[in-house]
Design a protein around this nucleic acid. Structure first.
Lengths: 190, 190
DNA sequence: GACGAGCGAGAACGATCGTTCTCGCCTCCC
DNA sequence: GGGAGGCGAGAACGATCGTTCTCGCTCGTC
């Protein structure tokens, strides 16, 4: 039977992607070599290239995982509160918790887009799809609250701005500022 | 006397920085080699390393120039209108014009921060100072309009969010959405 | 016209990258 | 127990990077 020493291929892929995510997010994609990924994951180069055809494929898989984690965590935070208005504001509370992580370094999609978006169409598309997904999620929440599509776009812009502001300034206070702005916009619109 | 063939050193530096800015902004810093900069600028490698001690020094000079251009262009757009409220909104009109540039690819500071912020403290500091400068400029405009510091932070976050949204989505409509949100926040606060 | 300083073009260099290959060892099956 | 297949460790490879060096030419000066 399988022992710890030989995990099934899907579990190994997941492990590699998780380690790669931490490395890429913390240092930038181009600053992490395949050998760094090998040491950090304990998976040999031969196996890495058996699991993934190239480094870019790993990058895309990392972005896919990050999108899923973000989406489900946000949905969980939204589900924890009751009213449509609270659900809208829950987004910014979720951001506040995230910003206070010690290793918070901004939105991984924005960072990777800035680094590789101009050279890798696949990376640019992944970032675009992630942001479009968030915008349409916000639109569904706003719709449930009786707001317009324009309000949804405005709330999404606030969330984007809070992420880059918190990342570059190195402080999490942008989450509270964005939350107060969102509350003002919501109350003015409804 | 000096002819076209031997421009003075400051003019040559300015030329190199301008060309480097276009290359770095369009493709990302790490995707542009010193040889690309040599071909694009027509300045030999030996001269490049006589003008600047390293590639990173050129990157920092590019960011410094970009900060000055952004700051003075924004001030000019703000000066063109009269009332304090209009001056606040002029920021977003300025963004709208910028977003419609064919080669708009987001905020150069955000992009460079995402690419090199984790590895180069100097780049991270340049991005931080640029954003802090913008925030304090917004704060002075808000103060002149009789608004609070929190309103200033909120308006700055809207501008940040519009930049990344426009960059990744590839469309400039975020400027108008951010402008309408800003108007709502201003009217609610004053 | 001879000479020396300075410059451009590009080779050279050492480092590093993504990717592949080699080799030795371990393990599993008959 | 013996042979074969698969794996890990790391060398190898070709490309590319930032940076420096070499060489030959051009020019200004006496």
């Amino acid at each position: 039977m399988d022992t710890v020493a030989t995990p099934a291929e899907p579990a190994l892929r997941a492990h590699v992607v998780e380690v790669a995510d931490a490395l890429f997010y913390g240092r930038g994609v181009q600053a992490v070599g395949m050998d760094d990924l090998r040491s950090a994951s304990g998976v040999s180069l031969k196996r890495l290239y058996g699991l993934f055809p190239s480094k870019e494929a790993i990058v895309l898989e990392v972005l896919r995982r990050r999108h899923e984690l973000w989406t489900s965590s946000l949905a969980q935070a939204v589900a924890a509160v009751a009213s449509p208005r609270e659900k809208l504001l829950a987004t910014y509370d979720y951001l506040a918790v995230w910003f206070d992580d010690d290793d918070f370094r901004g939105c991984g999609f924005i960072n990777t887009f800035g680094e590789l978006g101009a050279t890798s169409p696949a990376v640019a598309a992944a970032a675009r799809e992630h942001k479009a997904s968030f915008q349409s999620y916000m639109a569904s929440l706003v719709d449930a609250a009786g707001g317009s599509a324009d309000l949804a776009a405005q709330l999404a812009i606030l969330a984007e701005g809070a992420q880059t502001t918190a990342a570059i300034a190195g402080s999490g206070e942008a989450a509270g500022q964005a939350r107060r702005a969102a509350a003002t916009l919501i109350d003015a619109a409804l």
